Amino acid sequence: MDNLYHTDFYRWKEQQKQHLIHKRFDQLDLKRLIEEVDDMGRSERNTLESHLVILLLHLLKYQYQTYVINPNLFEPKEFRSWYDSISQARMAISRLIRKNPSLQHEQDDAVHESYPDAKSGAIREMNKYLLKKYQLNEQSYPDTCPWSFDQIMQEDWLPEA
C-alpha cells in the first residue's frame, strides 16, 4: 500500500474508496487517509486566503491609484480596471464560504494571514509603473490590514484615502 500511495495516487485513492464501500476497514491505509482528510480542510483555507490576497491586492492598488496618483494627474483618470477583479474575487470568496460555511470562523484570521502577501504584491506591481523617486516600500501601506472582512466583502465598498 505504501508503494502504491507514492507511485499511483489515483489507484491508491480508488482502492481506499473500495475498502470503505465494502466495509473492509482493516485494509484501509488509515495514516494516509487521515493525512488526506486533513489536507482537504487545509486546501479550502488556502483557497480562501488565495482569493483574499487577490481582493486585498486590488483594493490596495485601487486605493493608491485613486488617491495618490490620480489627484496628481493633469487629467484625472478613473481606474475602472480594478472593479472587475475586485468583484470577481468577492464572488469567489462568497461562493467558497457558501459551499464551506465553517470557513466563516476563519475569515478574519485569513484576512490577517493574506494581507502581507497582498501588500508585497501591491508594492511590487505598482513599482513597475512608478519612477524610481516615487517607488513604494513597506511603509507605503499599513503593517496590518486596515479593513475588516465584512467591509471588504461589501459589494459596492471601495477604500478611501
Score class of each variant (00 low, 15 high):
Glu138His: 08
Asn100Met: 02
Tyr115Gln: 04
Ser87His: 10
Glu75Met: 11
Gln18Lys: 08
Tyr134Phe: 14
Arg98Trp: 06
Leu20Ala: 06
Ser94Tyr: 03
Leu73Glu: 14
Asp29Ile: 05
Phe74Asn: 10
Arg32Leu: 04
Leu57Gln: 06
Ser87Asp: 12
Gln135Val: 01
His19Leu: 04
Lys99Asp: 15
Gln65Met: 15
Leu103Tyr: 06
Glu125Ala: 11
Ser94Glu: 08
Leu55Gly: 09
Asp108Val: 07
Tyr129Asp: 06
Trp147Val: 03
Ile152Cys: 03
Ser114Gly: 02
Leu55Tyr: 10
Arg124Val: 03
Leu130Ile: 08
Ser114His: 05
Phe74Trp: 04
His112Ala: 14
Met126His: 02
Ile86Met: 07
Ile86Asn: 00
Phe149Leu: 07
Lys133Asp: 15
Gln65Thr: 04
Ile86Cys: 02
Ile152Glu: 01
Ile152Val: 15
Arg95Cys: 06
Val68His: 06
Tyr67Ala: 05
Phe25Leu: 15
Trp82His: 15
Val53Met: 04
Arg45Trp: 05
Val111His: 08
Ile93Tyr: 05
Leu131Met: 09
Val53Glu: 09
Met126Ile: 05
Leu57Val: 00
Lys17Ser: 07
Met40Ala: 13
Arg32Pro: 00
Ser87Lys: 13
Ile97Asp: 09
Tyr129Leu: 06
Lys132Tyr: 07
Lys99Tyr: 10
His22Leu: 11
Gln27Tyr: 10
Lys99Met: 10
Gln65Ile: 08
Leu57Ala: 01
Glu49Met: 13
Arg90Pro: 05
Cys145Thr: 01
Arg45Pro: 00
Asn127Asp: 05
Val53Leu: 02
Gln139Leu: 05
Asp109Val: 11
Arg90Ile: 04
Gln151Gly: 00
Pro101Phe: 12
Ser50Tyr: 10
Ile152Gly: 01
Arg80His: 14
Leu131Val: 08
Arg45Ile: 12
Ile97Glu: 07
Trp82Asn: 13
